Simulated scan of single mutants.
Amino acid sequence: MPHHPPQAEEELAVLDALLADLAPDAEHLLPFLHRVQERLGHVSPAAIRYAAHAFNLSRAEVYGVVTFYGDFRESPVGDTVVQLCMAEACQAVGCRDLATHAESSLGVQLGETTRDGRVHLEAVYCLGNCALGPSVRIGDDVHGRVTAAAFDTLVAAATSTRGAA
């Protein structure tokens, strides 16, 4: 049996637990990857190899699924993910200005994580809240008609909640 560093052994144990109640059929690949993303925050190269073996697929097939769906991440991001809708409906009501404010407020560009690792800011292209743009999703919560001041308040609340947990 190959020797794995302690961190790799811990990840393998987590992956084993996430797979435990799923049949090794390719139809369960997406539920497994969602579990991995939720538990580990991203789908690592080790998780891609693991899934390929577990579901009898090539690593390329699993990697193709991970890269096809925008919600999967291949590397860790900040503790709090803040998504700004940049779709046309939100552009019509000021999301570009909101994005400029968000980048300035957090000191990062879209697609980056703050230096302290607390907030990851990213663009998305529709949160399904078109009538209430500009829209922002923080975690699982979607907020509409977000102003610069509301953005700062929402991010502060989300990061203070995370820090206290």
Rank of each mutant, 00 (worst) to 15 (best):
M1N: 09
M1A: 14
H3K: 14
P5H: 14
Q7T: 11
E11V: 11
L15S: 04
A17L: 12
A17P: 01
A17Q: 13
A20H: 09
D21L: 02
A23F: 05
D25V: 13
R35L: 03
V36L: 06
Q37P: 00
R39H: 11
R39F: 02
H42W: 12
V43W: 02
S44F: 00
A47Q: 02
Y50E: 02
A52L: 08
F55M: 08
E61I: 03
G64L: 04
V65L: 09
V65P: 00
T67E: 14
T67Q: 12
Y69V: 10
G70I: 01
G70E: 12
E74A: 10
V77N: 04
G78W: 03
T80E: 10
L84F: 01
A87G: 14
A89F: 08
A89P: 04
C90Q: 03
G94T: 09
R96E: 15
T100K: 07
T100S: 06
A102C: 04
E103N: 01
S104E: 13
S104M: 08
Q109E: 15
L110N: 07
D116W: 06
R118L: 14
V119F: 00
H120F: 10
L121W: 02
A123N: 00
Y125M: 15
G128T: 05
G128C: 02
P134K: 09
V136T: 07
I138A: 02
G139Q: 09
G139R: 05
A150C: 05
F151K: 00
F151I: 02
L154D: 09
A156G: 04
A157D: 15
S160M: 13
T161I: 11
R162F: 12
R162D: 12
A165W: 06
A165M: 13
